[in-house]
Simulated scan of single mutants.
Amino acid sequence: MLALPIDVGWLRGDSVGHLIEELGGAPGPKAVMLGGQLDPLASFPEALTGLARVLAQVPGTALLRADLAAFGALARGAAFAGFGLSGRLRHTVPPGEPARSSGFATSPAVLFPELMALFLGKTLARRFAATHAPVCECAACGQRPLDSFPSNRDGRPAAQHNTAVLMSWQRTLQNLAAGPDRRRWWQERCRTAVDRYPLVNAAIRQPNGFKVQPQLLRWSLLDAAPSAPAGAGAD
């Protein structure tokens, strides 16, 4: 396995074509890990398009150290993908640069399935303080409210919840035929999540309570058709 940490800038403009040439010429299976600060795929609008081109034109490529992109990559034909357990495992950082963060977290990251995003447990507790939080029915929670992970003491059940939800998505995706069915399922799931944000914010009476993350929005808008080389028509 050729593991390649690459700067996300290689997915921009003409650079992605050169990356595809180099990957295509390398023997054996390849796995790429995108480099950048925070969410590399949110760095510029065409990043997801570039990633989709790489996966379509270099069969057998995998994506490691990813977040939502792990599922988007699988839907686009990746050989396999890895969803990082923590923020520092969801991308790589350029050599010599300290990783940017929002500081020490006093509560675990909790996956909000309907919004397809991770939020700190204390943030969920604060947002739902005046109303009932959604109840999670994943295999790990057993109808546990999403606002019940307010401190790092809840780290283990939060991780179990996240894993159970992600595995349910993975099973659904792999039960679909590779190709158009998987691409459409992922796009529709992302669109549904984006549409849920204003509804959830209205329910908690906080217009800006939860904000759509840029990468999720871009997955919802990315054409579900297969990616073709620049200047060529899609199938």
Rank of each mutant, 00 (worst) to 15 (best):
P157A: 03
F71V: 15
P226R: 08
R182Y: 03
V8N: 09
F128I: 00
L85V: 11
L111H: 09
R153Q: 10
N175C: 13
E114H: 05
L221K: 04
P59W: 08
A178Y: 03
V110E: 11
A70C: 13
R65G: 13
V54W: 07
F128K: 01
V135W: 12
Q174T: 14
L173N: 07
L48Y: 00
G72Y: 00
L146C: 13
D154Y: 12
K211G: 04
P134G: 07
G72K: 00
L41V: 06
Q213F: 11
A105H: 13
L41R: 01
L55I: 02
Y197T: 03
E97D: 08
G96R: 09
L89C: 14
T106D: 11
F71N: 13
Q160N: 07
A31K: 08
P214W: 00
V212C: 00
P95L: 02
P98F: 03
A109G: 15
G17P: 05
F210D: 01
L222N: 03
G28L: 15
G24C: 05
P94R: 08
A105R: 13
A26F: 06
S101F: 02
A81V: 02
G82Q: 10
P150S: 06
E97G: 07
L38E: 12
P145Q: 14
A62D: 09
A129E: 11
A117M: 14
G179P: 07
F104S: 09
